[in-house]
Design a protein around this nucleic acid. Structure first.
Lengths: 188, 188
DNA sequence: GTCTATAATTAGATAGAC
DNA sequence: GTCTATCTAATTATAGAC
């Protein structure tokens, strides 16, 4: 409470936030296994022991780092019509939040991240399926979701050169008829 | 050369093959980092030291285990027309070779696997691009490839429940018009 | 040639000084 | 409260016995 100095609670909050930010970046870059507490601490400019003090374990730190994803992605698509999926193209192809990237980076090799990914994708599928017509709505919803996943993985994580310089609008344009077809609409 | 006993060269060849098979299975299951030499040796019923003796390092073992992928996938799509991509659906959705799964499992977290994935996918894109019409053939080819990647990842690696019991033909049927659209064909 | 025993490295986690 | 120093465990990799 001394003037000119931050309250200790506030100071701690900011330090935690800085650690989380560094953790997300490193997890997103190299995945859970290759990201080390020491590396995260160094990037956040804090002592490695402090990271453990605050978050208890590497596992819990990872959970905290990717947790936001669930909420954020839950708000993404949102509404009722298929055009919204196309709308998310911009987000998916642009700057996806670090927490999402962190989760995706590890989803094939870290059980916790895999479970998280299944949950997020599953919710997306559910939401889509409600708005799609036909018997096979769920299958179509799943495939739409996986198309987006594939494009995102190729672009953001594998960084394929074929998509490197291409503007989002161009990708969205080429992809649109394809998604419309999956949504069960015959014509454009 | 003694009767009734395999020649030592042949015996060694078989042991190597058994190790490679076990390595592919484990790499495909849990990825490069979580797969251990000990675990692979145990699955192959050999001594861990023998694995090192034969392959030199975990890294080289991994390379050998996924190398076949390049050739196998190179033969996959093959010919000239777009229908061939649809034809690969059966392969991709059915039993993909273990070596391919091993590579895909680690492609987001292991640099070597990532490079391998980019190479394989890049060749696929190249081959497709030659057969597609239009200015944006390469972009379309890349997106087609990523669609297949997304579906494969969701089905084989994430094992999403929405695709679990669905027969390949059903998935192919729903996916077909979407891929046709990406290929630049207006109608079915 | 095969394997036992161990070296060497690196990680996550902890205890205690200040 | 923060960090130094250390512990413990697991791994790859190696050297040498048999």
């Amino acid at each position: 409470m001394v003037d000119g100095v931050l309250p200790r609670a506030e100071r701690r909050r900011r330090t935690e936030a800085r650690i989380l930010e560094a953790a997300r970046a490193l997890f997103a870059d190299v995945g859970f296994e290759r990201a080390t507490i020491r590396g995260i601490a160094k990037a956040a400019e804090v002592d490695p022991a402090l990271v453990m003090q605050y978050f208890g374990s590497k596992q819990e730190l990872f959970q905290q780092a990717v947790r936001v994803t669930l909420v954020a992605d839950g708000e993404l698509g949102a509404e009722e019509v298929v055009e919204n999926v196309l709308g998310t193209l911009n987000v998916k192809l642009g700057e996806l939040p670090q927490s999402s990237l962190a989760m995706m980076r590890s989803m094939l090799t870290h059980p916790e991240a895999a479970a998280s990914a299944r949950e997020v994708l599953g919710k997306q599928v559910e939401r889509l399926a409600e708005t799609l017509p036909g018997e096979d709505a769920r299958l179509r919803a799943a495939l739409i979701t996986l198309v987006m996943l594939g494009v995102t993985v190729g672009h953001q994580l594998l960084e394929m050169e074929e998509l490197a310089g291409v503007p989002q609008e161009e990708i969205a344009r080429v992809l649109r008829p394809s998604l419309r077809a999956l949504a069960g609409q015959e014509v454009s």
